[in-house]
Write a protein that binds this DNA or RNA. Structure first.
Lengths: 255, 255
DNA sequence: ACCAGCTGTTCGACTATCCTGAACTTTAAA
DNA sequence: TTTAAAGTTCAGGATAGTCGAACAGCTGGT
């Protein structure tokens, strides 16, 4: 269920943002290219780009416009807002060193899972940097690990907002079943994603909490299902992730 | 002299952006807090925030607003636009592993030096993640290394735009002197920053180019001046950075 | 060298729409 | 319960964004 937008929104700001999204979609563009795509006069687009350029939200190279460094700077603030997020980076990298699997640090924002740090080896085909991407909580490993630590009303609230959309045949779409799984996650201390949002994907996620009990985020390792096989291997991985999280929580408590 | 376009800019977009900057400055804020700081009615700010929230440029937690994940996602596109930039990340990390000094990958955008990747150890006090920050080219190590590889008209253009502002007593503020130093950089293959933009800072930077000859960006290592001493050590560091750059250029050429 | 066709940019008038202040609702504290 | 302060809604009026046309600058073709 999509969110409400009944409230009057600012058209001007909205089109400025739309232009930024266009610039991201295609890799930089000229004025008329965007004008055509958005079905708006060139002069309008030009005005927006001039404003965005002044703030360095876009930069201009020749006649091409690109996303600018100020956007990178501001966006990055999401990752530095909390000291815990900054600390999490090196633990993400350690997790990768130990497992040699793509490692991610994720936080919950607005009821979704947002990637803040990723670490992966050189030759990993699909390792685009997906920072800021938003995934569902109910069908990802860290997502479920985080959910399991949230107070129940909050869980309800999130499910009400986003529902339990089915993305593969393995997705848990039943409310009851999800809560049962969360209980299992709490017992064993980690969550597993068995191709629930992408086929052929296997992931293990563990939530990190403060001493107060509330969740900071979660660490996870991800790999192609066919390469992560055998109960021993899986158990060992779960153990490794849990260890990293423990050390992370400890270091955070000491700081 | 700063380039100020007197061209009509869009007020609405400009204030939306101003709000984002306020949210970054203080760490998340409520409506009235921003309204007060910007000396505008609450209802105005509310409208902007509602629009920004709809696009996930901000998120709302309780009555507090924070920079949102969509901004992180868009901003990060700056780092993934070119495959070379993505590849540069792992080399930045390797550089850190080998030198144990804060390592940075920087590109030139709009005549300034923009940090795209940083790698530094756990216990480095000042290692805030400054991605997207913009520094001058004339008084930084990578900056000079990059300048040295640019065609002369471009260098002139950049100096005309930003000037040669003095930031410490070591800053080169004379045009002639700068060109002489760039010549030296070309000869030795690396540039040095001897506390030219921050006191007590020492840095070595090397530019990376494509086979076509044009610059991709540059790698650098940075440390407190008092900890990087001795000509041997410095020469060894320069050698290490140059090696990394060579390997980077090679791998890029092969891909 | 010239022109044709494309781009980016400027400009002024119109009117859509953003701003504003006040009214209303909600939350928190006294 | 009352008070205060914050968030949110609303409608009218003035501002400021939109639009189209005209200008300028570049590119490639003939």
């Amino acid at each position: 269920m999509p969110t409400d937008d009944s409230t009057k929104t600012l058209r001007t700001t909205a089109t400025s943002i739309e232009i930024l999204k266009q610039l991201e979609a295609i890799d930089g563009a000229r004025v008329s290219e965007i004008a055509e795509r958005m079905d708006k006069p060139k002069s309008t687009i030009h005005g927006h780009l001039a404003t965005l350029k002044q703030e360095q939200f876009v930069i201009k190279e020749g006649d091409f416009y690109f996303i600018g460094p100020e956007l990178l700077r501001l966006g990055n603030q999401v990752r530095t807002r909390e000291p815990a997020f900054v600390l999490a980076r090196q633990f993400t990298e350690r997790l990768f060193e130990e497992t040699r699997l793509r490692s991610i640090f994720t936080v919950e924002m607005g009821g979704k899972a947002v990637f803040l740090h990723t670490a992966s080896g050189s030759k990993m085909g699909w390792s685009h940097e997906q920072l800021g991407n938003r995934l569902f909580l109910h069908n990802t490993a860290v997502g479920k690990a985080i959910l399991a630590e949230l107070p129940e009303p909050r869980i309800e609230q999130i499910i009400d907002r986003w529902g339990l959309p089915q993305e593969t045949e393995n997705t848990t779409t039943d409310r009851e079943a999800l809560f049962e799984e969360l209980e299992r996650v709490r017992e064993q201390g980690y969550a597993v994603n068995r191709a629930e949002n992408f086929n052929e994907l296997y992931a293990i996620g563990v939530a990190a909490t403060r001493r107060s009990g509330d969740v900071i985020g979660g660490f996870s390792v991800t790999g192609p299902a066919h390469s992560v096989t055998g109960e021993d291997r899986k158990a060992e991985l779960a153990h490794t992730v849990k260890d990293i999280v423990s050390e992370f929580e400890l270091e955070l408590a000491l700081a």
